[in-house]
Design a protein around this nucleic acid. Structure first.
Lengths: 240, 240
DNA sequence: GAGTGGTCTAGACCACCAA
DNA sequence: TGGTGGTCTAGACCACTCA
């Protein structure tokens, strides 16, 4: 009766490690203590720590490098720079050629976006609009909304400086690392404004990609809407 | 120099297990031998077998059930029936209401599809067209192409009998289990034929979902094209 | 209670990296 | 050469299922 819900030791270790990540004890890109050290700190065997880290590695929260150590995942690397990008050219390649900032302004959160970001309706937010170009042709119109409270350092100049690598910028400037995202895809017709920005006729079918990104502890931190022309590109997804 | 490429024991065990799955030694839905038995068979420790099975379980090729055993994954279960379905209603639910078969005919593979299915252009294939309805309204127009050589038993009557659960049918009738899929999404405008089938105006934006599904050993076995109305539904994807 | 997967440990040894 | 993660083993014990 009322069994106190069994929780494996390694899950508790995993929770402790996650807590340290949330607290910022180990910054993205830096090494966490060795398995032996952690085992000693928590008073468990190395194998138990290992299993906890295994799960964090499987979730891409942490990255193991044999012979070197275990590192907090970061978007500040060529290999992980486009981790969340699922848009590929018809030939399968994955290169963004250019990126043009349209605006970066303060605004108030709409009810819908506030709910998704877990903030109050009308809260101050930063709203960014940009154009992504692939072969010198505009392909994606992006609208990005960030809670101002957590992203005070975001300015047009800095976005330009980071050349549109938003997640790198969040990490470096705000110390906020995005762990995972949820995307909702639909097909829509381009409205007049979008059509003008992308230089196409109103009503042209576009892939609409709505994304919410989460940092440690499943805290939503960014909302995005991408309107994407799919003449030469597609969204690739692996199911298993 | 010329190191012979180190391969862990558990990877070799995993390969042996996969071979048994390909050969059909263990059918989908049935239990594979216990970890102890496998350890004895392969002459390794139980922990090594365990690690091999861990990877197969992570890939959804096999399913562990504590206290019962390890089972070959199947689409013949309520929990796994819609494993590859990423279409959700606006409220987040996931129920297909109905499914209407339009046609099921023999045809010859086009060059593009033949390449994806790894068969010769012009090979005999089965081509299925169907309509998926959600709230009594047609939402998805599906076109499915199967290599005839492997799917001789597929007929319109049987598709009806399985009520459109194609992967269940492939498993039961053909003994073919789909392990993973790749999907390519774009936005398109409805052509005249599609518009008629879905009862909407030509040019209406639709989500185009092209899917190739693979069985054991990464062998492509099914090609699909779904044209999906996204007024009340969306494609949900988790990135991490 | 017997059998299965799940956890945890302790220790040995291997592969990889940096200095 | 020493430290890190990676593999492998052997054995103990726990949680779950079913007869």
């Amino acid at each position: 009766m009322g069994s106190p819900v069994f929780q494996p030791l390694y899950q508790q270790i995993k929770a402790l490690l996650t807590k340290s990540l949330i607290s910022g004890e180990w910054a993205p890109g830096t090494a966490i203590p060795s398995e032996m050290e952690l085992a000693a700190r928590f008073g468990v065997s190395q194998g138990t720590v290992r299993k906890a880290i295994d799960e964090l590695a499987a979730e891409n929260i942490v990255m193991r490098r044999q012979g070197k150590g275990t590192f907090v995942a970061t978007h500040n690397e060529d290999t992980t720079k486009f981790r969340f990008l699922r848009i590929f050219a018809a030939d399968g390649s994955k290169k963004l050629l250019d990126n043009k900032l349209l605006s970066c302004e303060r605004a108030k959160a709409s009810a819908a976006i506030a709910k998704l970001l877990d903030i109050k309706t009308g809260s101050a937010v930063i709203e960014i609009r940009r154009l992504l170009l692939f072969s010198n042709k505009p392909q994606i119109l992006d609208r990005i909304v960030l809670p101002l409270a957590s992203f005070k350092g975001v300015t047009a100049e800095r976005i330009e400086a980071y050349n549109g690598s938003m997640y790198r910028m969040y990490e470096t400037l705000q110390g906020i690392h995005m762990v995972r995202s949820e995307e909702r895809l639909t097909a829509v017709g381009a409205d007049a404004e979008t059509a003008a920005a992308l230089k196409l006729k109103a009503g042209t079918p576009l892939l609409s990609i709505e994304r919410v990104s989460y940092t440690y502890g499943d805290k939503p931190m960014e909302w995005r809407l991408g309107l994407c022309l799919t003449d030469d590109h597609h969204y690739l997804n692996h199911l298993d």
